[in-house]
Amino acid sequence: MYGINCKKFRRQYKKSLSEFKDWTQKSHAEDWIIYPENCSLRLSLDEVALSEGELYTVLTSKIARGRKGSLVAIIKGTKNEEVIDKILKINRNVRLKVKEITLDMAGSMKLIAKRCFPNAMQVVDRFHVQKLAIEAVQELRIQYRWEAIDLENEIIKQSKDKKVKPEIQIFENGDTRKQLLARSRYLLYKTREKWTESQCFRAEIVFREYPDLEKAYNLSDKLRKIYNQNITKSVAMLKLAHWFKNVEESGFKSFSTLRNTITHHYNDILNYFETRSTNAAAESFNAKIKNFRLQLRGVKDRAFFRIRLKSWGEC
């Protein structure tokens, strides 16, 4: 359009116009980069797939809220020894000033946070906990859906043998049993207040046909409401104790597993109710990285991608 050769312009930008030629971290940029000046009192630790499904550990500042000054470190891989070795390159006095770090429940992340930021309070991100509860509900829905598929296949098979039209049950909203369970997926992610009129009607049918699915949904919803309430740590402990009792009475194996997981990370999960900090800023920054990679139609020169990412996102 402008009479410029794309490959030539790309080459000139990389070698002359950008900072890449004189970038001090160019030699190791494919494996790790750090910006100690962006380290703040509150950090987020997460992982992201930068290219070809390769996982990178990303440390970001919460104060920057995904904008300028967010990126503290990107390190290839998730092995705690390698990540710790790179983060320890940040001045010790700077690391000791960090007061809070949000992360998921992975043991490697907790070890990294403990070794690199010993004075920081660890806060397990609420959305990782809620995600497990939602997955427990979806697991039950999928189990019932496979049973519905088997039932429908059996009805069709018998009808073919008898050479008659298959009599497949259709509910009031026009869904078959298989469709009912498949189309209930998204409404089970949301609170009742956010259901549309058709979703309310579908939920009424699916809960009537599968009472256990309603019990599982209610357990997930109660956990979400505990997080949504502006309560103190001590009140949260009491509400979680009641929730544990409800889980025990339900007899759902997946929720019992979730209860045990929460118990193992109990203190770090409860720390959320002191500061109400989440990994939202880190997730926003990770989405920003993925969006930039999508605009580039993939990444060939990984080292150059790092500095372009810094320039584009004003990290």
Rank of each mutant, 00 (worst) to 15 (best):
K178Y: 09
L238S: 09
D150K: 15
A203G: 00
I262E: 06
A49E: 13
N260C: 05
R67G: 13
E314V: 07
N173A: 08
W32G: 01
K222Q: 10
E248D: 13
N218A: 07
V129S: 02
F9D: 05
R297L: 06
T24M: 10
Y217Q: 02
Y227S: 12
I90W: 00
E54M: 12
Q122I: 04
R11A: 15
R177Q: 05
K131D: 10
M109S: 05
N246Q: 11
L240E: 04
R276F: 09
D268N: 07
I74D: 02
L296C: 15
E37C: 03
A49C: 14
P166A: 08
D212E: 11
E154I: 04
E167C: 02
P118Q: 10
N153C: 00
T176D: 12
A236P: 04
N38P: 02
R185Q: 11
K165V: 08
R92E: 13
G313K: 00
E204D: 13
L270N: 09
R67E: 15
L17Y: 13
N93E: 12
F305R: 07
L187D: 06
I262V: 09
K290H: 02
F20Y: 15
N218M: 06
T232G: 14
L88H: 09
K15G: 04
E147T: 02
A106K: 08
E197N: 08
L96Y: 07
S40E: 14
R65C: 12
D22S: 07
A29F: 05
L181M: 14
F171T: 05
N271G: 09
V137D: 02
